[in-house]
C-alpha cells in the first residue's frame, strides 16, 4: 500500500481486514451498545430509589388507610423506613426486584401483581403494534410513492385526523358507538374487561371471548399507532423519490414496482423501523388511557390505579419495569439499525 496503489487496485480498510478483525469490530460494537444499555439501566435503578423517597406523603399511613393492618406489621414497616437512607439504599440495591414489598392498595407483593397484568398488556399493545406497523408501512409506501395522488390525499387526510386525536377520546367515541350503541348501531362489543365472567381463558370459547373483548381497545390503539407509522413512512418514501439511485434503477429497466420494492423501500424503512422498535418498549407500559377507558386489566390500568393511590411500592416497581422495557427496546433498535443500514455497521 504505497505509491503504486494510487487509484487502481486501491483497497480500503474493510477489504484488508481479516474475518477475525471484522468480527472483533462487530463484537466491540455490540458490546458498546449493550454496555451503554446496562449503564442506563443502572442509572434508572438508582434514580428509581431516590425518586420515590423524595415524594411527599406517609407510606405507613397509605398502608393503613381504610383498613386495619396488623400493628406489629406496621411497627416493623415504620422501623424499616426509619433506617438511615444509605442503609435502605444498600438493601434496595441488593435486590431491586425484591418480592417482599407489598402494594399498599392491593396488599399483595408488587411483582406478583405486575406479573398477572403483564400478559393482557402484551396481548393488547403487541397486537396493535404488529397490525399498525404492517398496515401503516403499507399505506405510507403507497401514499409516498405518488405524493399528491388520490390515494395519498385520502390516506394522508385520514391519518392526520387520527394522529391528532387523543387516544382516550377516540377510545371513548368507539366505545359509545360500537359498545354502548349509538346512531342506530346496536352495541356489538363489550364495554370493558378482558373476558366474560364464568369463562376460562383456556377453552376455545374463552379465547374467542377474549378476542371479542380485545377488538375495540386494539382497534383504538392500532388506529393511533398506524397514523404515526404511515405518516413517517410516507415522509421517508417522499425523501427517497428524488434520489439519483432510483433514476439509475429505472434506467436499468426495472418495473416501477420493483424500483420501489428493491430500492426505495429498503432505504425509506430505516427511520420507520427505528420508531417501531422504540415504541415496542412502551408495549409493557401499555396504553394507560386506552386500558383505563376499556377497563382492560393490563399494566396501564394498574399504573393508573397506582397513581390514584398513590401506591408507592407498586409505582416504583412499574417504573422500573417500564424503564427496563424502553431501554431494552432502544438497544434492540440500535442493533437492528446497524443490521439494516451498512453505513452504521462497524
Amino acid at each position: 500500500m504505497a505509491i503504486q496503489s494510487q487509484g487502481f487496485g486501491q483497497s480500503t480498510h474493510a477489504e484488508k481486514r481479516s474475518w477475525f478483525r471484522r468480527n472483533r469490530d462487530l463484537s466491540k460494537f455490540v458490546l458498546a451498545k449493550l454496555g451503554g444499555g446496562v449503564l442506563t439501566l443502572l442509572f434508572v435503578v438508582i434514580f428509581n430509589f431516590f425518586l420515590f423517597r423524595m415524594m411527599p406523603g406517609d407510606p405507613v399511613g397509605l398502608y393503613n388507610r381504610g383498613r386495619n393492618q396488623d400493628p406489629v406489621q406496621l411497627a416493623k414497616l415504620r422501623a424499616a423506613l426509619n433506617r438511615p437512607i444509605w442503609d435502605q439504599f444498600v438493601t434496595y440495591m441488593r435486590n431491586p426486584f425484591a418480592e417482599t414489598i407489598d402494594s399498599t392498595r392491593f396488599s399483595r407483593p408488587v411483582w406478583g401483581l405486575i406479573g398477572d397484568r403483564l400478559w393482557p398488556t402484551v396481548l393488547l399493545v403487541g397486537t396493535a403494534i404488529v397490525l399498525a406497523s404492517i398496515i401503516g408501512v403499507w399505506i405510507g409506501i403507497r401514499a409516498g410513492w405518488t405524493p399528491g395522488g388520490r390515494f395519498d390525499r385520502i390516506s394522508t387526510g385520514f391519518t392526520l385526523i387520527l394522529y391528532s386525536m387523543p387516544e382516550f377520546w377516540l377510545g371513548l367515541v368507539l366505545l359509545i358507538v360500537f359498545a354502548v350503541g349509538a346512531f342506530g348501531i346496536p352495541g356489538l362489543f363489550p364495554t370493558g374487561g378482558m373476558i366474560s365472567p364464568g369463562l376460562s381463558g383456556g377453552s376455545l370459547r374463552g379465547v374467542l371471548d377474549t378476542g371479542w373483548h380485545l377488538a375495540l381497545p386494539c382497534l383504538t390503539l392500532t388506529l393511533v399507532y398506524l397514523a404515526e407509522y404511515s405518516l413517517i413512512m410516507r415522509a421517508s418514501v417522499v425523501d427517497e423519490l428524488g434520489q439519483d439511485y432510483l433514476t439509475t434503477a429505472r434506467a436499468k429497466g426495472l418495473l416501477d414496482s420493483d424500483v420501489r420494492r428493491r430500492h426505495a423501500v429498503p432505504n425509506a424503512l430505516l427511520p420507520t423501523m427505528t420508531l417501531i422498535f422504540m415504541n415496542l418498549g412502551f408495549v409493557v407500559g401499555g396504553a394507560i388511557t386506552v386500558e383505563t377507558v376499556y377497563s382492560w386489566p393490563g399494566l396501564g390500568l394498574l399504573s393508573y390505579d397506582a397513581i390514584k393511590g398513590p401506591d408507592i411500592p407498586l409505582l416504583q416497581a412499574a417504573f422500573l419495569l417500564f424503564s427496563f422495557a424502553v431501554i431494552i427496546a432502544n438497544v434492540t433498535a440500535d442493533l437492528l439499525y446497524a443490521y439494516l443500514d451498512p453505513r452504521v455497521r462497524p
Binding site: 439519483d244 439511485y245 433514476t247 429505472r250 436499468k252 430500492h263 429498503p266 432505504n267 443500514d341 453505513r343
Partner: peptide, 29 residues
C-alpha cells in the same frame, strides 16, 4: 433500457443505492 443503451450517472455522489452491495447492483440489469 440498459440492454441497448446504458447511462453512466454521476456515481460519485448518489447514483448507487447505499444499502445494497455494489456487486448486486452491477448484476441487477
Amino acid at each position: 433500457r440498459w440492454a441497448k443503451a446504458a447511462i453512466v450517472f454521476q456515481g460519485a455522489m448518489h447514483g448507487l443505492n447505499p444499502v445494497r452491495r455494489v456487486g448486486e447492483q452491477i448484476g441487477e440489469p
